[in-house]
Design a protein around this nucleic acid. Structure first.
Lengths: 203, 203
DNA sequence: ACAGCCCTTGACTGACCAGTCAATCCATAA
DNA sequence: TTATGGATTGACTGGTCAGTCAAGGGCTGT
């Protein structure tokens, strides 16, 4: 069939990307060599450069693939007619589930891109900023509707919400926070409860 | 006098550390060369190795110098007989003021150490974890005293609080969040208000 | 059957840079 | 004045690694 050849090529490309996730995650982008990725993928060194123009482009691809899906998910959630608290829960849930599904990939995205202000973070600033903007809009609409109070600027609330999520993932990545099915669900609840409910005791 | 010589040596050492802050901050730890630091400090390449065993040790020194002060400040704040909300405000205030006083240093600490899970973050995991532990204890005591509700695990609340702060600093570092005297003060208020008060509207 | 083309290989190159070291400088003390 | 030893210099070395390239392999369509 006509697609066999191109299908095989797509598979090889994917094979290299998957190997890169493991390699970047294990040793870090800077510390690992392109030959490590090739070894991990079980292909020759040169083949990596047949599919990707540079080592950088591999990480760009991994980041954009996943980040784009996340942005779409945020837009989709925001379009639903549910309370803001539920929207935030759905977004926290999506990110936590992304980690559950592929912790290595999320580690790479967070450690090497969203937190790397000097290298990849700067290159993908627009995509990262877009997430803050979308989250800010959710908060802003909730404030206008009266379900969130207006004490905190929407843009700022978005940062705090996303920051709490990223810090929890970082806790898992560093191994300072317990992991497991129950912990993942618990985390979603805690994140929303902290940001929406606050720590203060009820009068 | 007897201290002239050793004083001059201490000054040179400080000069190199200050130059490293600027250089690491501008280009990132991995992207910059030791010769950049020497140039920035106005000293010969070899002198850097007279004062520091390696490029890594320079970053270790910068991080530990500042982190130790922060941990002390957290302990000091916790020892005071004030409400937990005020304790958290004082800590957020200290970190924001650290950024105000030396944004480059805080950028280096956050970008190259506390968020670098594969390299320096792993090496300084104990010091980083200690901050979470101390913050968790503040929350725990407040919950026991009834001023914070017990819905969220203390350890988790600590992550969310610290995560919100770090995300705000990252916003400033990336240039996606407005900076200035008013913004710094505003940020302290927003952080505490979000984490303690929550976003939900009051009934 | 076979020509064409893309896939695949891995040795090689050129550049880069952390860390070394032998030589020199100079403040201090005897 | 002169000896001592830490401070200072910068050329050099050794190793690393991203990216290149020329050659071989095998699928595909005619």
């Amino acid at each position: 069939m006509a697609t066999t050849r191109s299908q095989a090529a797509a598979d090889k490309r994917r094979q290299i990307l998957d190997a890169a996730v493991i390699t970047f995650s294990d040793r870090g982008f800077h510390a690992c060599r392109v030959s490590d990725i090739a070894d991990q993928a079980g292909v020759a060194y040169g083949l990596v450069y047949h599919y990707f123009a540079s080592k950088d482009k591999i990480l760009d691809t991994l980041f954009l693939e996943r980040w784009t899906v996340m942005l779409e998910r945020i837009r989709e959630v925001d379009a639903q007619a549910v309370p803001a608290r539920e929207k935030l829960w759905a977004i926290a849930s999506f990110i936590v589930d992304s980690y559950r599904h592929d912790p290595n990939l999320m580690k790479v995205i967070i450690v090497e891109v969203t937190r790397a202000a000097n290298s990849f973070g700067a290159r993908h600033m627009n995509e990262i900023r877009e997430a803050y903007v979308l989250l800010g809009q959710i908060v802003e609409k909730a404030q206008a509707a009266g379900s969130f109070r207006s004490e905190v600027a929407p843009q700022f609330a978005a940062l705090a919400f996303y920051g709490a999520i990223e810090q929890v993932l970082t806790g898992w990545i560093f191994g300072v926070l317990a992991q497991g099915e129950a912990e993942y669900e618990q985390a979603k609840h805690y994140i929303v409860e902290t940001i929406c409910g606050g720590l203060d005791a009820r009068e």
